[in-house]
Write a protein that binds this DNA or RNA. Structure first.
Length: 469
RNA sequence: GCCCCCGUCGUCUAGCCUGGCCUAGGACGCCGGCCUUUCACGCCGGAAACGCGGGUUCAAAUCCCGCCGGGGGUGCCA
């Protein structure tokens, strides 16, 4: 059975890049009818925060992901200890008493001599007596993995192909910190092995960790899983997408009024190509059906808010159901302070206007005239209105007996005025729009007139007329 | 510096493995037109790319070599 996992560290909010990794891991597992695990990698107690963990889980759920198992590494330290002992016993690891200052000095020296830095291996060959003595002195110590000399670790990456790295490129690395907590490279191996993970999907920034982990797998007698290293997501300047490029957290897109379905879909298009045709809009279920690692790209992709925005528009206007649209839009309408008690009214407005905005933030602005009591007319728009006084009074005169039950009926009604007054369409529509919305552009006036109660239409126009004197 | 990864329109990409069907296809964005009560939506059209240099071949985006460019890693972070 295929088992994948998403293993974020709770040191910040869910980043778009990590979200995509999670999505690919999820799609891959679901596609193969396998298991998807969420594992919180919080071995670094200094930087891990509970609030981040909670927001991670919330964002993942919001995106539409679900998992079969959940783990927290901070609760598994006992398990790791056993394996560390095993490595120590068999000589695959050894205690290191070097202090941070000493290591810092080594690093600086290497830099000065312009040679690549590796740990010197000073504590590598301490005798048992020396170790005992140092321990007795109460000296704190970390535990390092003993990297064999001169070996080249080769693995077949499912996306990049064959990757070979000489282990001389890195020295003996730390697997347990001097405070006793295990590090990432160790626990990721133990957990993946114990949890039966068959495919590790992660960002390509982990490629250099992979040989270290393979060494540990071997030392522990585990069979390494398959690896698939996803290309990173870049910002507009082609460097790794980060805060300085703007909003990069999933949460910020939720707050901006993006649908999770659209974000999910868009993220999939970053570095993966659907196999069939030119279609790019796919529901989660379809993505599960067609997702395949062989269609994942090798090269990094630049994140484009414009395209995300476009896709969100597609979802709003033609993909999601009216119920889903209502459910997703409601919080934004509420937050704007619009009255939303009348469910039918809100539904109707949303349905008629869904092609007029691409995010819910934009919707709030666009839909203002549908929800506020009174509209303010900017001073500069009053003058043009003055010339259309007779149009407005004619409108008022005919309003009572008019059938405004649908946008089409409204069109008929307005056409009547245009015809009878012998005017151009614009000479009637424009003043009506300004009088009813206070704006010169926006959602169709026919739509507005068909949903707003007649009393409201009347009062808005009357108010304008009285202002004009 | 060293190691690793990557390189087709501005961006996401198809094509590359299995050379000719590529006058390099699609999408976002952009420009123009149509529709129209403005903007938008929709429809139609357009500009826009094989990083460079060698080779192999009748023929190269596709195969080989070199260069250049970009990115990532180089932690007692993950």
């Amino acid at each position: 059975m295929v088992v994948t996992r998403f293993a974020p560290s709770p040191t910040g909010y869910l980043h778009l890049g990590n979200a995509r990794t999670a999505i690919f891991s999820y799609l891959f597992a679901r596609h193969h009818g396998g298991k998807f695990i969420l594992r919180i990698e919080d071995t670094d107690r200094e930087r891990s925060k509970k609030e981040y963990e909670e927001s991670l889980v919330e964002d993942l759920r919001w995106l539409g992901l679900d998992w079969d198992e959940f783990y927290r590494q901070s609760e598994r330290f006992d398990i790791y200890r056993k394996y560390v002992d095993q490595l120590l016993e068999k000589g695959y690891a050894y205690p290191c008493f070097c202090t941070e200052e000493e290591l810092e000095r080594e690093r600086r020296e290497a830099e000065l001599k312009k040679i690549p830095y590796r740990y010197s291996g000073r504590c590598r060959n301490l005798t048992e007596r020396e170790v005992e003595r140092l321990k007795a002195e109460g000296r704190p110590y970390a535990i390092r993995f003993r990297v064999p000399d001169g070996r080249t670790v080769v693995f077949e990456d499912l996306i990049k192909g064959k990757i070979a790295i000489n282990v001389d490129d890195f020295g003996d690395f730390i697997i347990v910190r001097s405070d006793g907590t295990p590090t990432y490279n160790l626990v990721v191996v133990i957990d993946d092995a114990l949890m039966g993970v068959t495919h590790v999907l992660r960002g390509e920034d982990h490629i250099s960790n992979t040989p270290k982990q393979i060494l540990i797998y071997k030392a522990l007698g585990f069979e390494p899983p398959s690896f698939a290293h996803l290309p990173v997501i870049l910002g507009p300047d082609r460097s790794k997408l980060s805060k300085r490029h703007g909003a990069v957290s999933v949460a910020s897109y939720r707050e901006e009024g993006y649908l999770p379905e659209a974000l999910f879909n868009y993220l999939c298009l970053l570095g993966w190509t659907p196999p069939s045709g030119d279609r790019e809009v796919f529901l989660k279920e379809e993505l599960i059906e067609i997702f395949d690692l062989k269609d994942v790209n090798r090269s990094p992709a630049v994140f484009s808010v414009e395209k995300l925005r476009w896709m969100n528009g597609v979802y709003i206007r033609e993909v999601v159901s009216r119920e889903r649209l209502y459910e997703a839009a409601l919080p934004f309408l509420k937050e704007a302070g619009y009255p939303v008690e009348d469910r039918e009214y809100v539904m109707k407005v949303l349905e008629l206007t869904r092609d007029a905005y691409e995010t819910f933030k934009e919707m709030v602005i666009r839909l203002r005239p549908f929800f506020v009591d009174e509209v303010e007319i900017p001073e500069n728009l009053m003058n043009p209105l003055r010339d259309a006084r007779d149009v407005l009074s004619e409108f008022l005169k005919r309003l009572e007996g008019a059938d405004l039950s649908s946008p089409d009926k409204v069109k008929e009604f307005v056409k009547g005025i245009i015809r009878d007054m012998n005017l151009k369409p614009r000479q009637v529509w424009h003043p009506l729009r300004v009088a009813l919305t206070g704006e010169e552009e926006g959602v169709g006036v026919d739509i507005l007139m068909s949903v707003l109660p007649k009393e409201k239409l009347r009062s808005r126009v009357e108010r304008v007329l009285s202002c004009l004197g």
